[in-house]
Design a protein around this nucleic acid. Structure first.
Lengths: 341, 341
DNA sequence: TTCAAGGATGGTAGCGCTACCATCGTCGAA
DNA sequence: TTCGACGATGGTAGCGCTACCATCCTTGAA
């Protein structure tokens, strides 16, 4: 694939040097540190590059300089809006640096994460960004030996491989649930899909509050390993109501489920928030617009992405800040869907 | 960044060879063509690799073999669910090949696309996947000279750089609009955000039908260059109704807008589809679940991603199929939101 | 005028890997 | 028994670039 005949093919730096009548190293410098080359030569070189259509070879550069400008990123999903925004933040955080993002999709699988880590490590990246704190032991070992800055994102924990930026999902779950309790709901259900470690911790937060309030009932919990979607939200709410017809509120593990739950209520003429209260998690754009508007927990995923890259850049430039674990928090957005008169 | 001392640092293939008591080339072969190495040596080598924690260096490999297993992909957005699914398809299409995806985000900018193309080309990728057919002349020239398979995705057109897979947005726009006309709507509006080339063509399809039916009125068209969102859908519908209170249907350029429009109608107690009909584009999961369910045009974006990679693989393995332009079509999904009694 | 200091430029020697071409058995046919 | 064929293994020479050090020239102080 993309095979070139040995010796043949694209112009190299030597071709440019010859044409510009300078040494190869000067061309190399003109490209990387223009200040150190006189303007005359710089122009000649630029002309030669233009005429030849020269494109430097990153592989050769990386090999020779034993450095690479790649930041390898592992996320569990690209279709999940939450991670899509994290990635957007990562890109924006790059700014004018020469860093490049290399994305890997683990599909919520530890094994796959391990495999991708191996693949990416063979690129000798400048830095590694991984999602969550539940790496397999092997993956964690690889991260520790990577010899480059590592950032774990989306969660906080007490045992970072290197750096960490995120928030506490457990606290997030507690906060929403506490709100529902305070609003007077008594038969508060939980519906969750996929149930990755972060979902689990949100559910644990739910359970902690509900138990403390003496309202816990396992029949109020409905989960499935199936990936989350709006249609699944509808189904899960239906199941939940079938199991516990007296359900009077649901904490939906994410906003897609919440939207699906809302639609189900609309369709079944169950008044929201009168008959049933609904809360989601992440606070996607649509939550505020929905009718009724939906209570959710605003997570700062874009900011997490941006700041993760900032941390990487700081670490690479030697000015690594002291704090290795950053908690960006979250924000409960109370809206119509849980405001019982 | 990620600098290693010359000579120092990670174990190399020579270290593995020494430890296993074999030649370097044999280690190389054991890794790439295990069949050609005896089982004894293969085991010794595997042990040595394990003990040393050896990870091959992709850069060196790419340089030495003048080949690289990277497929560079340029998409305009990663947060747009449509492209997120294309990317998912691309990943799934990879299967067991050794290809790796390298994602770039053009932010709907031709200039940025050009810049990224330059960056990616310096990696000498095995193949290139770009979105749409509206590359700048410079970008198109680079694609033509890339010397590797190129796939343009998401649209079809008559002048492919190399290969192409997608569908006609113009026809998509025509189809929805024709449906609205057939359902008896007479004051059919169009609302659109971002208005990238594909949106423009969908709008052109709308206009063609509406003009043919003698229903065209510029006041029925509401667009903005702002990126699309659910909340924007709500606003745009409000604007549209302010301009043309007799609006009786809207073709929303995408599903997010359609959902926002629906919520606005709910909130303003405008019956859907009785007072106003709503149609979207792309058919995201939520369209079917919404109440009322929303008419949309199902686009096969996941399939486009998968097949784009399949085309790349076929081209790379020499079995390039004859058809260079593939139209995967689309499917009108008629639902409650446009079914006037 | 001399000479150290510093900027601009170039030559050489790899970076870690694989293509290419030996070399060295081993085995079966003659 | 001999010899060619073939499979397994290894040595050498780069791939295109940059680190490192040498060289040359300019500049300004003594």
């Amino acid at each position: 694939m993309a095979r070139r005949r040995r010796g043949g093919g694209k112009p190299t730096i030597a071709d440019v040097a010859r044409r510009a009548g300078v040494g190869a190293i000067t061309v190399s410098r003109a490209l990387r540190e223009p200040d150190r080359v006189s303007e005359d030569l710089r122009n000649q070189i630029a002309t030669a590059i233009e005429e030849l259509g020269y494109v430097p070879d990153r592989n050769a550069r990386a090999l020779a300089s034993a450095r690479d400008d790649i930041v390898a990123v592992l996320v569990p999903s690209l279709t999940n809006n939450v991670f899509a925004e994290v990635v957007r933040g990562l890109y924006d955080g790059l700014g004018d640096s020469h860093l490049q993002l290399h994305l890997g999709n683990t599909h919520y699988s530890g094994i796959e994460e391990e495999r991708l880590l191996r693949v990416f490590l063979s690129q000798r990246p400048s830095a590694l960004v991984v999602s969550g704190i539940d790496q397999t032991p092997a993956a964690r070992a690889m991260l520790q030996k990577a010899g480059c800055p590592v950032v774990q994102i989306m969660e906080t924990g007490s045992n970072p491989v290197d750096m960490m930026i995120g928030f506490s999902h457990f606290e997030g779950g507690r906060t929403v649930t506490r709100h529902l309790v305070e609003m007077g709901y008594r038969r508060i259900g939980f519906i969750g899909a996929r149930m990755d470690p972060r979902s689990q911790r949100r559910m644990a937060g739910y359970r902690a509050v509900v138990e403390e309030a003496g309202l816990y009932d396992p029949r109020l919990v409905t989960t499935t390993p199936t990936p989350s979607s709006v249609s699944l939200g509808r189904e899960l709410l239906r199941h939940a109501l079938a199991k516990s017809p007296d359900l009077d509120a649901v904490f939906c593990n994410n906003d897609d489920l919440a939207l699906g739950a809302l639609f189900e209520c609309n369709r079944s003429a169950l008044a929201v928030p009168g008959r049933i209260g609904i809360a989601g998690f992440n606070d996607l754009d649509m939550m505020e617009v929905a009718f009724p508007s939906l209570t959710s927990v605003r997570t700062h995923r874009y900011e997490i992405g941006r700041r993760a890259v900032a941390m990487v850049r700081a670490a690479l430039s030697g000015t690594r800040q002291p704090e290795h674990v950053v908690d960006v928090g979250f924000e409960l957005k109370i809206r119509e869907s849980t405001s019982r008169k």
